[in-house]
Computed example of a mutant assay.
Amino acid sequence: MVKKVSLNTNHRDEMIDVTKAVRDYVDSTGVESGVVYIYCAHTTAGITINENADPDVKHDMLMRLDEVYPWTHEKYRHAEGNSASHLKASTVGPSQMVIIEEGKLILGTWQGIYFCEFDGPRSRNFYLKVIEG
C-alpha cells in the first residue's frame, strides 16, 4: 500500500524534516525487515537524507544550492521563471530508500529524512511505500 503524506511549505527554499512521518508509517505497517521508499512526485522539490542535529547544515546546503543555481540567470529560457528550482530538484533527486530492520529505520546517529522545497511556498505531497523482505 502507498501512503500519501501532505505538507505545506513556507519558503521558496526549505528543508523539512519528515523522519517522524516516515518512522510512524513504518511502525504502523508492522514490517520487521524490508525497505521504505520515500518519493516526491514534484519537479521542483526532492527528498534527501542528511544531518538533522545542526540546523546550520540545512542553511549551508540551501545557500550553496542557491549559489550554484541562482534564481535568475540571463540564459535561463524556461517561461515560468523557476529554472533554478528544477535544477536543484534534479540535483537532490526525487527519492530515497531506507532499510528497515527489527521494525526500525536504519539511519545514522545524525541522519534525518528531508522534503526539500525549491519553489515554495506550496501545498506538497510525498509518498511512502514499504516493501517487506
Rank of each mutant, 00 (worst) to 15 (best):
Q96K: 13
K129M: 12
V22F: 06
K3C: 00
T91W: 13
D60R: 13
M63A: 11
H42W: 06
I49T: 12
D13K: 06
Q96Y: 02
L107A: 02
C40P: 01
P70N: 07
H59T: 12
G30I: 12
K58I: 04
G34M: 06
D13P: 08
K88Y: 13
I16V: 15
F118L: 05
C40L: 01
I99V: 15
V35D: 00
Y39G: 01
A41S: 11
A84S: 15
E117T: 02
D27F: 12
N52I: 02
S28A: 09
G93V: 04
N50V: 08
R12L: 11
D60T: 11
P121F: 06
I106W: 07
Y127G: 04
R12Y: 08
H73G: 13
S28G: 06
M97Q: 15
V26M: 07
H78R: 15
M15F: 10
D54K: 09
D119G: 02
A79G: 05
H73P: 09
E80F: 02
N125S: 14
T9V: 06
W110Y: 14
E102S: 15
M1Y: 04
L7D: 07
K4H: 02
N52P: 04
A89P: 10
T19N: 01
V36I: 11
Y127Q: 03
T72M: 13
R124T: 02
D13F: 06
T48R: 10
D66T: 04
P121W: 03
D17I: 09
I49R: 10
V35W: 03
N82Q: 05
Y69V: 02
M97W: 08
K75N: 14
A79I: 09
I100C: 00
I106Y: 11
L7G: 09
H73M: 12
E80M: 04
L7V: 12
C116I: 04
L7F: 10
N10Y: 12
D54C: 03
H42F: 02
A53M: 10
E101P: 00
E74I: 09
I47K: 04
T72Q: 14
T29H: 05
Y69N: 09
T29P: 08
F115K: 02
S83A: 13
I99L: 12
G120T: 12
Y25F: 14
V57G: 12
Y114P: 06
K104L: 14
H42T: 00
G133H: 06
T29S: 06
G103N: 08
F118M: 11
E80V: 00
G133L: 10
G81S: 04
